[in-house]
């Protein structure tokens, strides 16, 4: 990853952490000061969806033109996306505890998000259960496409069709409820970009480590042959 992208991510995150805690936010009942969690909880999910999208695109590309390099990218992006998703669900539970009354409310948005994470967790179980490299890459690429296709309705569509307390679901407006003057967007979007870039950075490190591992294996094979 390019150094200027890393520096942009760092600058954005520093700005978000300062502005997110210090700048004024709309005064709303029940939410009170916790409205600021929006700057930290929601970017986790946006980052996850973007990383899963990249993973999904590489899966399609893998099926079109199989190569171990593409397979490494599919895994790395899905892996970092899953980490962000787990952080998203944990922060959501903490937030729900103080605004909805309990950490797990069985809200359609929460349930959908949990199922989506389990679907992606199964992706790694599937990979772990196959020994043949080519077979593993091909089957898991197909599964990854299915996982992405399942995640979108689980997180974005089903919660909107039923009643949900989560903003942006079940007839609830998304952000419009909070940011009448859209001042929150000036912090929220930088947060999304910042965390997404950090996700890309970590994924790039993971891809490089995997590449090194495979090169070492190749060297060892060359010696023994």
């Amino acid at each position: 990853m390019k150094t200027w992208l890393k520096l942009t991510a760092i600058a954005l995150l520093f700005y978000v952490h300062i502005a997110g805690l210090l700048f004024d936010v709309p005064r709303l009942n029940i939410l009170n000061e916790t409205i600021r969690a929006l700057y930290f909880h929601v970017p986790m999910w946006f980052g996850m969806v973007l990383l899963f999208l990249i993973s999904f695109i590489y899966s399609i590309r893998y099926l079109g033109k199989p190569s171990p390099e593409t397979d490494r990218k599919v895994v790395a992006y899905a892996n970092v996306g899953l980490v962000l998703g787990i952080l998203g669900i944990l922060t959501g539970m903490l937030w729900a505890n103080y605004t909805w009354g309990s950490p797990w409310h069985g809200d359609p948005k929460q349930n959908g998000a949990a199922i989506a994470l389990l679907v992606y967790l199964a992706y790694f179980v599937l990979r772990g259960s196959l020994d043949n490299e080519e077979q593993r890459a091909r089957l898991s690429a197909v599964y990854n496409i299915f996982a992405f296709a399942a995640m979108i309705p689980l997180i974005f569509i089903i919660p909107r069709m039923t009643s949900s307390m989560h903003p942006g679901s079940g007839g609830n407006p998304g952000f419009n409820m909070y940011d009448l003057d859209s001042s929150m967007r000036l912090i929220f979007y930088p947060a999304v970009i910042g965390w997404f870039l950090i996700g890309l950075w970590i994924a790039s490190i993971r891809i490089r480590i995997k590449t090194i591992e495979e090169k070492i294996l190749e060297l060892e094979d060359g010696k023994s042959a």
Partner: peptide, 20 residues
């Protein structure tokens, strides 16, 4: 300019919602 605009939103009217 954007930063200044954001800061200027800080002059919101106080209401009775409890904040820190």
């Amino acid at each position: 300019c954007l930063l200044a605009v954001t800061l200027s939103f800080g002059v919101n009217a106080q209401s009775d919602v409890e904040m820190a």
